Simulated scan of single mutants.
Amino acid sequence: MRLPKSAHTDLPWRIHAVAGDFVIEDVWALPTPGGPDELRELVDWFAADDRGAQPSRVYRALFATRWKLGALLGWDSERSGVGARVPTLRDRLPADLRDGPRGPDLATVPFTSVYLTDTEWVAEMGNRTVHGVMHIGWVPDGAGGYRGQLAVLTKPNGLFGKVYMALILPFRYLLVYPALLAMIERGWATRGVG
């Protein structure tokens, strides 16, 4: 379920001090019910190569097209990513976060872990269009349990990045997020089964 941006901004996340110059694009409640200490399990599941739930054909086709375009147009070259075009957010971290656990990098998409605490995990990616941040927090669900909450933050690369983000907006809401949330729900429900 899509949430208002205040669902992210009203919580005392450490990311606010690290990425205050990023725009909050989206905030979503993740279908990942659990107990108070299950963020690490969600992070490990999310970062794994085989999550036990395959994305839909539409989702796979959309991303295959995006990666093909990116390769063709040079959007995703190493010199346009984190550590080249943009510095890593790890350079902004206070000592306790920098010296603490990073968390795993994602196996299937080009996100690199920035930091991991008991309640939040941050990963970043960069290309010619945008410097993007994925923030997954572990929050009370209002019914005595907990669940994940996904926030996507971006810093578009100039006018090109802003136009790109505007162009992909309908695809994100109509195709990407519904498929992603369905995959997460299926995978989380069946984790450890089999």
Score class of each variant (00 low, 15 high):
F160Q: 13
R90L: 01
V27W: 00
A182G: 02
A71W: 10
R51W: 04
L39E: 00
R172L: 07
G144C: 04
F63L: 15
V130D: 09
G34N: 08
L181K: 06
G103D: 04
G81Q: 08
G35S: 15
D21R: 09
D141G: 04
G103W: 00
G34C: 05
D91N: 11
P94A: 03
P110R: 14
K5S: 11
P87W: 10
A19K: 09
L73Y: 12
Y146C: 13
I168K: 13
H8C: 10
D44L: 15
W45E: 06
L30W: 03
A47K: 05
G20W: 01
L174D: 02
M125S: 15
M125G: 04
V86I: 09
T108Y: 03
V114H: 05
R191T: 08
W45A: 03
H16A: 05
A19I: 01
L89H: 05
L97R: 01
V18Y: 06
L73H: 02
T9S: 15
S6C: 07
H8P: 07
P12F: 08
M125D: 14
R79I: 07
P4K: 06
L153H: 07
V86K: 08
L167N: 02
T154K: 06
L11G: 02
P104E: 00
L174E: 04
L159H: 06
